[in-house]
């Protein structure tokens, strides 16, 4: 009896493995994947997709590195793509040789984290700037002074999202640094001083920005463009500012893991999302740009003109992609961050 049980268990395992041909396990940020897109992919290729959420690049990296995760696809941010590649965690799937690659915006082909796109396909990209309720403050909002040297109308009602890398980068740009991972102690010291001096004017350091900005609980916040977009749809007085001193850009890219079990399906998915119509579905859900040419035509009308998605030309250049900083610089950032929140 026991033997039959074991045998049938083994049989089930083998059957399970064989069945895996029609599966795809995606490991992506939470509340980021359009369910309609997944449904379309499942129906087109007869593949069962499972999505698992993570909340930070470090979480994703740690879990993938530990192994035994069962994921096929991961969607790390720009700086982390390079770390994933350097650690040998990604499969060289050559998206640049895929059928739909012709749709990729040339701007995003030769990027620092994946030159020539040998590993990854853009998912979404956006910026971290400042959101301001213009019914409270009508001055210039295209500056980090909104939270680093706040005008009197805003003081005490400002939120700063607790994203260490973004906030440190903005402070460094604000005091004249050009590289967010600079080792220049003078710049770092100035960045610390400006943060410590500004902190008493902040109300909180919290997430959940979309809702609290539109409700007026916060009149200004360091925030992401897509989130500010959603806040503006609920409350038209919320506007997005692109700090002229410099602001971080980010792009999350779809990569296939080196130990993926469903490599062919994962490649199909990479190709699938380079189709303009499908890329538009990604953006319609989370409200960020995607990097695929021609996807505009399939986007909801309100995205084509949204100032949060289309930066004014003179401010577009101030956006910079940040790398993940080396350990020594990271330690300084953490020390400053701790001092800020002590």
């Amino acid at each position: 009896m026991k033997k039959t049980l074991i045998l049938s268990a083994v049989a089930a395992l083998i059957a399970g493995a064989a069945h895996a041909e029609g599966e795809l396990n995606i490991y992506n940020w939470g509340n980021y994947t359009n369910p309609d897109l997944i449904k379309k992919f499942e129906e087109a290729y007869d593949v069962k997709v499972t999505i698992t959420d993570y909340d930070s690049n470090t979480t994703a990296l740690t879990k993938v590195e530990a192994g035994g995760h069962g994921f096929d696809i991961v969607v790390p941010s720009n700086g982390y793509v390079k770390i994933f590649i350097d650690k040998g965690l990604l499969l060289e799937t050559r998206p640049d040789q895929m059928e739909n690659f012709k749709n990729m915006d040339p701007t995003w082909v030769n990027v620092g984290w994946d030159m020539g796109r040998h590993y990854t396909v853009p998912w979404q990209w956006g910026s971290t700037g400042v959101a301001v309720n213009t019914s409270t403050y009508s001055g210039d909002i295209n500056t980090s002074a909104i939270f680093l040297d706040p005008p009197a109308e805003l003081a005490g009602k400002i939120n700063v999202v607790p994203e260490m890398a973004d906030v440190m980068a903005m402070a460094i740009y604000y005091v004249g640094g050009t590289d967010s991972c600079t080792e220049d102690k003078e710049i770092l010291k100035k960045a610390r001083d400006v943060l410590v001096a500004a902190k008493p004017s902040w109300l909180s350091m919290d997430y959940g920005t979309t809702d609290k900005l539109s409700s007026g609980e916060w009149v200004a916040s360091v925030n992401w463009n897509g989130s500010t977009f959603r806040a503006r749809l609920a409350n038209p007085t919320v506007q997005y500012g692109y700090p002229v001193e410099g602001y971080p850009l980010w792009m999350d890219s779809v990569a296939v893991l080196a130990d993926a079990k469903n490599v062919e399906n994962a490649k199909l998915f990479q190709n699938f999302i380079m189709d303009p119509e499908n890329a538009a579905m990604i953006s319609a859900f989370a409200r960020y740009s995607n990097g695929i040419m021609g996807s505009d035509a399939f986007m909801p009308a309100d995205m084509k003109t949204a100032p949060e998605i289309n930066p004014p030309a003179e401010l577009a250049a101030a956006g910079k992609f940040a790398e993940a900083c080396p350990k020594a610089v990271q330690d300084i950032h953490t020390a400053i961050w701790t001092e800020l929140q002590k």
Binding site: S56, T58, N159, L203, D206, D331, T334, T338, Q341, K342
Partner: peptide, 24 residues
């Protein structure tokens, strides 16, 4: 984290920082 607004850490949040963004 939720009610204090993260402006001032308690030990729990400080420990989380080291395992998360602090990478220590």
């Amino acid at each position: 984290r939720v009610l204090g607004g993260g402006k001032k850490m308690m030990v729990g949040n400080f420990i989380e920082l080291q395992f998360g963004a602090g990478r220590n």
